[in-house]
């Protein structure tokens, strides 16, 4: 493991409707590692994830502190007003607790972020979609029915589809909010396996409730205690 810094979080304070969630949280995340965020439910782990792609609700929450992400080795203050949040979110992908494919075909789901980014060349799109689906261990299962409705897939397949969709823009960071909690053990195991494989290309931050899962895949474990991080074993 090369010990290059990927994300640096400094003195983060976050409160939601006058309720303090983070108070002085600091964290350093290394490149190409899997970082587990653990702690009791309701303590703000998911909220913390959304500070990394600015997906929190700015109308009812407040945040201070500094978060820098090294994109291709260059540090970027992600709350710099000149840095558009759409650009940030294209570089920092996110996968949610419950699979959330859009009501369109498998292909169009994965191609959707490319459309949003304004990349429309047909050949390029097909290439990227196939690559992302392979990365998400889904290609072999869906290659014959790319134009079928994504909602017909099983839960585990849907979640891998969402991972493929998050990967299609080749993000450098991937945020995962309990990605296996709505799946059965077998489907969860496939996803764990693919996350370990993804370390080659991505830095991952994963919120998880299953300590066994954390033990299996995480390189570093950060426990959220009283609004601060305590970094643990491994």
């Amino acid at each position: 493991m090369d010990n290059k810094l990927k994300i640096s979080i400094n003195d983060l304070h976050f409160s939601y409707k006058d309720k303090s969630v983070l108070s002085g949280a600091s964290l350093r995340i290394m490149e190409n590692t899997i970082n587990a965020i653990v702690g009791p439910s309701g303590i703000g782990k998911s909220t913390f994830l959304t500070t990394l792609n600015r997906l929190w609700d700015t109308t009812s929450a407040e945040m201070t502190g500094k978060i820098e992400i090294f994109f291709h080795g260059v540090p970027q203050d992600i709350y710099d007003p000149r840095f558009p949040e759409t650009t940030l979110r294209r570089k920092v992908g996110m996968v949610f607790q419950a699979p959330n494919p859009l009501p369109m075909s498998i292909f169009r789901n994965v191609a959707f972020p490319l459309k949003l980014a304004g990349k429309t060349s047909r050949g390029e799109t097909e290439e990227s979609v196939e690559k992302a689906l392979r990365q998400a261990f889904l290609w072999d299962e869906v290659k014959d029915r790319l134009h079928k409705d994504a909602l017909l897939l099983s839960g585990g397949q849907q979640q891998r589809l969402c991972i493929a969709r998050a990967l299609v823009l080749a993000p450098e960071v991937l945020l995962l909010d309990e990605p296996t909690s709505s799946l059965d053990e077998k489907a969860g195991a496939v996803i764990e396996e693919l996350l370990v494989e993804l370390k080659k290309n991505c830095t991952m931050v994963i919120v998880s409730h299953y300590l066994a899962q954390v033990d299996r895949i995480a390189d570093t474990v950060h426990e959220l205690v009283g609004g601060k991080f305590v970094t643990g074993r491994r």
């Binding site: 294209r90 996110m94 949610f96 998050a166």
Partner: peptide, 13 residues
């Protein structure tokens, strides 16, 4: 809300 955040998380304006 869970539907509203899908596209922004993928870089949608």
């Amino acid at each position: 809300e869970s539907t509203r955040i899908i596209a922004p998380a993928l870089g949608a304006s």
